[in-house]
Computed example of a mutant assay.
Amino acid sequence: MTVDFTFNIITIILDLIAWVSIGIISFHIYQKKAIKLKAWKVIVVLYIGLFSFNINWPMFDTVVKLPILPLGVWILYFILKRKEGRWETYRSHAWLGFGANVIFIATTLLAVPLQHVFYPEEVATTYLSNIENAYSIPVHPSATEKKINKVTLKNQLPNMTVEMVYSQDWYEETYMEMESNERNERFPYQLTGVTSKWGSGKSPVIYIEIDGKGLLIKTKEKELYFRSVDSFLEEVN
């Protein structure tokens, strides 16, 4: 595994902005009330109001939870209506809680283009920002002992190109077209000791191609195959 920091700074900032926005709206509603409410009760109502029945909707390379039914608002209604006037007092805050789901949807959608701007997926340095402690680990019997030439790797990273991942073809090359005693794994080394770009939230597993010119980067979402001009693997003396 390769990452020291696994949080996504863009998501954290946008979530903070969302909560601040909700707080400001809630404060304006609070000020307009003739009866001054206790702050902790308002917070509880807002939190319960957030609960909803959602459907997952894929949109712009992410899955958005669309709120359909205001479950939290219904719960609050049945609880608060027992005492006259209480529901009317907290109703606007309850609906603000449900409406906050829309604010979070907006920040989720905004995070997608920002993520591509600050942490482009098709740039190798997004996944290998710091390679000072990089080393290779053989993960297949066909691998000979080799080490990383860090200078070459560092020079190659900015110019690495993304190529198609041929999973099926590679599988057939390795397992279908050779006898078991002649099989060579295409990616017999794992690259470890590297860190991805700070705040990207990326936690990839990275494999090195047998010729030392390719990197297969696996994240939770996808696989990416990068190729360099020169090999960054060298024999161990």
Rank of each mutant, 00 (worst) to 15 (best):
D4G: 10
I10N: 07
I13P: 11
W19R: 07
G23L: 11
H28E: 09
Y30L: 10
A34Q: 11
L37V: 11
W40V: 00
V42S: 00
S52Q: 02
S52Y: 01
N56V: 04
W57T: 10
P58E: 14
F60V: 13
L66Q: 12
I68D: 14
P70V: 02
G72E: 01
G72K: 02
F78K: 07
S92Q: 08
L96C: 02
N101Q: 04
V102R: 02
A106W: 09
P113F: 09
Q115D: 10
V117G: 00
F118I: 07
P120M: 08
S129F: 09
N133G: 10
A134G: 09
V139C: 13
S142T: 15
A143P: 14
K146A: 12
N149L: 09
M164P: 07
Y171T: 12
E172L: 08
T174A: 03
Y175W: 14
E182G: 05
R186N: 12
Y189N: 13
G193F: 06
T195C: 04
W198I: 13
P204R: 15
V205P: 00
I210Y: 14
G214V: 06
L215T: 06
L216F: 05
I217K: 07
T219I: 08
D230G: 10
D230V: 14
L233S: 12
V236D: 02
